[in-house]
């Protein structure tokens, strides 16, 4: 029974990983790609780790999976924020269809 629930979580997580990577291919500019890929891949990998926690139970391996899921949930948005900030400073343009860019207006004002 535990195996069945765990493998269900793992397959859902793998599907979310796949959606994130399709987003990495299809979306037009860097910020959209970063956004789609970070969200989908973070929750997908956390789903896989949660499934392995359910399969292994309360053993050393299960606790390592739990710790790894917590760690990814904290660090992945931080690295996404660092990459977005760095590429905006380096001058990567937004897509042509973008509506507003308040950050560029404010940095040019100063």
């Amino acid at each position: 029974m535990n195996e069945f629930i765990g493998f269900t979580f793992i397959i859902i997580g793998a599907l979310f990983d796949l959606f994130g990577c399709i987003g990495l291919i299809r979306l037009p500019d860097l910020y959209n790609r970063l956004q789609a890929a970070t969200k989908c891949v973070t929750l997908g990998t956390c789903g896989i780790l949660l499934g392995s926690l359910i399969i292994f139970g309360l053993t050393a391996a299960g606790m390592k999976a739990f710790l790894c899921a917590l760690f990814i949930l904290i660090t992945s948005p931080t690295s996404a924020h660092a990459l977005a900030r760095a590429s905006h400073i380096a001058g990567v343009k937004l897509w042509e269809g973008s509506v507003v860019d308040k950050l560029k207006e404010d940095t040019e004002k100063k």
Binding site: L27, N32, K102, D106
Partner: peptide, 9 residues
């Protein structure tokens, strides 16, 4: 691709 991106404050 229904997107309408932008940076807001």
């Amino acid at each position: 691709l229904p997107i309408k991106p932008g940076i807001v404050k």
